[in-house]
Design a protein around this nucleic acid. Structure first.
Lengths: 450, 450
DNA sequence: TACCCTCGGTCAAAGGTCAC
DNA sequence: AGTGACCTTTGACCGAGGGT
């Protein structure tokens, strides 16, 4: 069962194994399974062709014997079974892991291995066959008649082995160490994300206002639920014509920003930088982090192709009366989402991208030391994202996937410029009243006016 | 000889040697070669079998390392490369032509050569290897690992030699190693760049105007010097107040666009797409290609930190009177350059980036097939750039270098939008006169108004 | 009806082997 | 030690058949 879920293909998850195995994720997995059952296609995936051969990392040509694989490995497996072949590895099954040039750092080894993917050359037939079995190639999916009794025996042997090992430990894999490292980072980001989620999804209750300054929020201990916010002020907006309290929903924009700020505080490197630099960084990153969060949330959780808040309401400046700049802003927000959707950003990619957005050493005003610290942090996430792409999309499509993801950043950046332009314009001129009506927080203004 | 024919084996129809000797068959050979070139499938041609070894004139057993050849020469070539052997001819490389037994008349020599075509007997190993290379045997088609560093050196040497003589007919081979592929692609792009450079650096001479339409330029054969442009029209601009010819420098903008278009025509994939799609693609890419070219040229060749034309004059809309949009446009141009400078883009990165900019499958209006073709082409360049970064900046900084380079693209894109906005605004309103004054070509307008 | 998968089969062209 | 006829293996490609 598990293998099937993992190999559920294409853009969608193909997650690293730990993701699948995390207890929190069971729900997600089940959901995935549900989708599969629903479309009544347990094995194959409509549309997208899997990108990488699970055996040798060549470009895959489709699912063969239940495994995304290339033509070569498909034929190799079939022949091996039909002829009932027995291979012996002369290198103690170390064809894959051994023989590396000495003195290479791990990532170097890895990227070389991925980018120079001719595993077939380095794998002996024994190890290749092993890898086929490991990847889950299903002997009973072979329709042709086995040519020898050896074949029959081998087939049964493999089937027994696979049945037995479903819940057993998978044998160590070359890339495990990289997967481990990637997993470690992803797990950390995931747990951070989980922590800030309630802050965003619950929103500030209607009529309440958070009066803290940006500096306060940044320098105070973590606050992960709105009801822990000190000095939350109840100041409902009164409709001037009717004199009644204007009904207003929960305030998600403010909370989305709060969530982004609290999120940024969870990174280890913030301990290494001083308050002034923190503020500069946060001012630069928050709008973008909030945007990508809203976009991803709408798409991933709420399955919406429109930008919506956690309560299901339409997000962004909703009314047309904001004029041209408003329209541009609005269009920009939607563009962010559209980009996310078009790329079918998955959760891992989202998390890493957000981390990369946050760790931007090019923000002007940062001291040199801080730039260096942040630069190193960013490099780590960039590398992880690249590794993830290479592992999941292969050496052919991986790099372009990686570049497509990075392109989202520039969309976020221009979106941020639009948002800030919009805010200034709105405040200065036509929208003075509207701005007063809206429960604009000081924090919001501080961010937007940077 | 006869036994060979009989034992010509198995299933496949290895041709009979007598066939080789028939004069009529020379034609067939040539036809075969022609077909191959045409379909760009040098590998195989099912059904037809090459008849004669291009190295030694024995009966061929098929294509080996891209050359119709016999078993012996195939094995000889492989062994020579794998062992990295160096042969020396003791007969001044005259094994083939000279040194005939004395006293033979020409006809004797000739008929002997035809009837006993065993050149191997007469060729020393040095000359045989020479002949292999000459015939076009492709060392990168050898899959086995070279056994010595000598082998690696020899292989590269041969490949360089062949590239020079065949003029880049090298075939995309699946098993070409990544390093090789990187070099191959870079060399190809370099040679393309060299070809278009004069078009840009010379510019159109003052007062001349190129009246061709975009379609004409795209569909006509390559023109790489301005003096080959058909119907170049001399139409100097007259100053209305003085009645004198306005002095104007060479027109670089037009030529830069021309250079970009001619450049795009050099990509192999353009043969696979129709005229309509070509136009769409070129309309989208030209401004960006021209921008990055101007930027890189200013920085790399002219060592300028300002955007300047090859003649040393300041580039871009130079006068402040263009108003706000003009200023924005101007600032954008400078921003492109600044980005280039800040990144210290080198030539390889510049070339690859330009190729990536050009091969954009996301341009709206392209048919799906074309999108796919272009997408594959782009993937190739993206992968190459990534590999280049990893190789040259290491696995720690390489990925972020790669991401920094990709970020230049979005700068180019927004710069393009500004340029087009500027053009439309200029044309429609305040700058009507200026636009008329400027020798704006139809081609320029067609590009700017897309 | 018309695709679109994935199956098996095919064969040109790789590599390897071993008398000579 | 080299050679090359013969052999094995590989994998791109194609038609078949079953599913949507």
């Amino acid at each position: 069962m598990l293998p099937d879920i993992i190999s559920v293909p294409s853009t969608s998850v193909k997650c690293l194994s730990s993701e699948v195995l995390l207890p929190e994720d069971v729900g997600e997995c089940e959901e995935l399974e549900y989708k599969i059952t629903k479309t009544q296609k347990p094995m194959m995936n409509r549309g997208a062709c899997p990108s990488m051969c699970k055996v040798c990392r060549h470009p895959a040509t489709g699912y063969h014997y239940d495994v995304p694989s290339c033509n070569g490995c498909k034929t190799f497996f079939r022949r091996s079974i039909l002829d009932g072949r027995k291979y012996t590895c002369l290198k103690m099954k170390k064809c894959l892991s051994g023989n590396e040039p000495v003195g290479m750092c791990l990532f170097e080894k890895f990227s070389k291995e991925i980018l120079f993917p001719d595993l077939t050359k380095r794998m002996c037939r024994s190890c290749r066959f092993e890898q086929c079995v490991e990847a889950g190639m299903n002997p009973s999916a072979i329709q042709a008649d086995v040519k020898s009794s050896d074949g029959e025996i081998l087939k049964n042997e493999i089937m027994r082995k696979q049945k037995g090992s479903v819940d057993g430990l998978s044998t160590p894999h070359v890339l495990l160490s990289f997967e481990d490292k990637v997993n470690e980072i992803i797990e950390k980001l995931t747990s951070m994300e989980v922590k800030i989620e309630p802050l965003y999804t619950e929103g500030l209750p209607p009529g309440y206002k958070d009066n803290r300054k940006l500096e306060d929020v940044i320098n105070s201990p973590m606050i992960l639920r709105y009801d822990e916010i000190p000095n939350l002020e109840y100041c409902p907006v009164i409709d001037e014509s009717t004199g009644q309290i204007k009904s207003s929903g929960a305030c998600y924009i403010h909370c989305c920003y709060l969530a982004s700020i609290e999120y940024s505080k969870m990174f280890d490197f913030v301990n290494k930088i001083d308050a002034a630099n923190k503020i500069i960084l946060v001012k630069h990153a928050t709008v973008m982090c909030a945007d990508i969060m809203t976009s991803f949330f709408s798409y991933d959780r709420l399955k919406s192709d429109k930008l919506i808040h956690p309560n299901g309401l339409f997000a962004g400046p909703p009314r047309p009366r904001y004029g041209e700049v408003g329209a541009k802003h609005q269009a920009g927000m939607q563009r962010t989402l559209v980009t996310v959707l078009r790329n079918e950003l998955n959760r891992v990619e989202y998390l890493l991208l957000k981390a990369i957005v946050l760790c931007n050493p090019a923000v002007s005003g940062l001291t040199e030391t801080v730039q260096e610290v942040i630069g190193k942090e960013r490099e780590q996430y960039v590398r992880t994202l690249l590794t993830y792409c290479l592992l999941n999309y292969g050496s052919v499509h991986g790099p372009s996937r990686f570049s497509a993801l990075l392109a989202i950043m520039s969309v976020l950046e221009s979106q941020q410029r639009n948002a800030k332009d919009f805010h200034l314009l709105a405040k200065a001129t036509v929208l003075k009243d509207l701005v007063r009506y809206t429960r604009v927080s000081q924090l919001y203004e501080q961010i937007m006016e940077s």
